[in-house]
Amino acid sequence: MGTPLLSVIVPVYKAEATLDACVQSILAQTLADFELLLIDDESPDNCPALCDAWAQKDPRIRALHPKKTGPGPSGARNAGLDAARGAWITMVDSDDTVAPDLFATLYAAAQTSGAGLVICNSCRKLPDGTLQPHPAEQCFAADTLLTEEQFWDAFNTPWISQFTGTAHRLYAAKLFAGVRYPVGMLHEDYYVLPDLIARCDTVQCLAYTGYYVLQHEGSITATARHEVRLAMTRGDIHRAAYFLSRGWYDRAEGALTDAADFLYRNKAAYDLRKPGHRAEFAAVKAELCRTYDALAAQKGARSLRLRAAALRAGLPVFHAYKALLSARRGG
């Protein structure tokens, strides 16, 4: 078998009920030049055997059994990236399915536009098979080509629900040169997004829906609220640092202010009586302060230096100072 055009990475964990449908939808693709990497994430059920069984049925499928390096799918995705041979990469979650023309549509768009990243709309799929589209304002209504800056301008629109995640997109494999998902962090995709976009000249958004997300009880984001909140905040701080490296001070300030406000509003949800939660919260806040200090130093504005000092004094002080400034400006 020669080098495949496309590598499909599927982390597999506790997916006995859904893996067959996922794999079958991938094998039904009209673009057949791909390899399918089933990454067993040390699933405690029969999934490892299922992965091996599928690998015996089709020469395009490889079953990998890396040692787990931490909670969450990051280690499995990284193992897939290390093993991938294709010039293009896409990822599918093991409880989701894809339309037969998904790969062909994404690849054709990449070839036409020259974009290093192509994103299409996703759609919810209920357990009974019914498709439940996202609200129209959250979907791409027309094919749109975005530069790096245009992408971040659009990021704060309702489109964010399509921009975040790892699936329903096609990546040029070169985007992952030197980039891997942070292990042990939820919403790891949100965290690495700036690293990937920084390597893209353009991002192609398609008004096409070809990825079906099965939502069900027991998902990571439904059972780990504390970790999700901190993971999203870490992602905002990382995004701000990326903006700072580009000299986009207003974008950096906006991301950091969002992170600070989120920590302030949700502090009670972290159960700081637990030493682990308390230490993690303190570490995230310290990272936020360091990045805000860096922003103030680079931009050199007195107002930013005062905000950075207020943040170091504490989240309530920062919140009160920001409210005071807003009141002075008349809202």
Rank of each mutant, 00 (worst) to 15 (best):
L6W: 03
V10W: 11
P11F: 06
Y13S: 06
Y13K: 10
K14E: 15
E16P: 02
Q24G: 09
T30Q: 11
F34D: 07
L36Y: 08
I39H: 08
C47E: 15
C47F: 08
P48L: 05
L50K: 12
W54V: 00
P66I: 15
K67G: 03
K68N: 14
K68Q: 15
P71N: 13
G72M: 08
P73L: 11
S74K: 06
A76W: 05
R77G: 01
N78E: 12
A79C: 04
A83H: 11
G86F: 05
W88S: 00
I89A: 06
D93W: 03
V98E: 07
V98I: 13
P100Y: 12
D101L: 05
A104P: 00
L106V: 03
L106A: 01
A108F: 07
L117A: 02
R124T: 11
L126G: 00
L126K: 08
D128A: 05
P133T: 11
A136S: 10
E137Q: 12
A141R: 14
D143M: 07
L145E: 06
L146E: 06
T147S: 15
E149T: 13
F151S: 01
I160D: 04
S161P: 00
Q162G: 00
T164A: 06
L175S: 05
F176A: 01
R180Y: 04
V183R: 05
M185Q: 12
M185L: 13
L186G: 04
H187Y: 14
E188Y: 03
E188T: 01
Y190E: 04
Y191W: 15
V192A: 03
V192C: 01
D201Y: 06
Q204T: 02
C205I: 02
A207L: 04
A207R: 07
Y211W: 02
Y211K: 02
Y211F: 04
Y212V: 04
E217V: 07
G218S: 05
G218R: 03
S219V: 09
I220F: 07
E227R: 15
V228K: 09
R229P: 01
R229E: 11
R234P: 02
A240H: 09
A241H: 13
A241Q: 14
Y242H: 14
F243K: 05
L244A: 02
S245W: 11
R246G: 00
R246W: 13
W248V: 01
W248C: 06
D250L: 09
R251C: 04
G254A: 10
A255Y: 12
A255Q: 14
A260K: 07
L263H: 03
R265H: 14
A268I: 15
A269I: 14
G276K: 08
H277C: 06
R278A: 09
R278P: 00
A279W: 08
E280K: 09
E287S: 13
C289Y: 13
L304C: 03
L304I: 06
R305G: 07
L311Q: 04
L311W: 08
R312N: 09
L315G: 03
P316L: 12
V317T: 14
F318M: 09
K322P: 00
K322R: 15
S326M: 12
G331F: 11
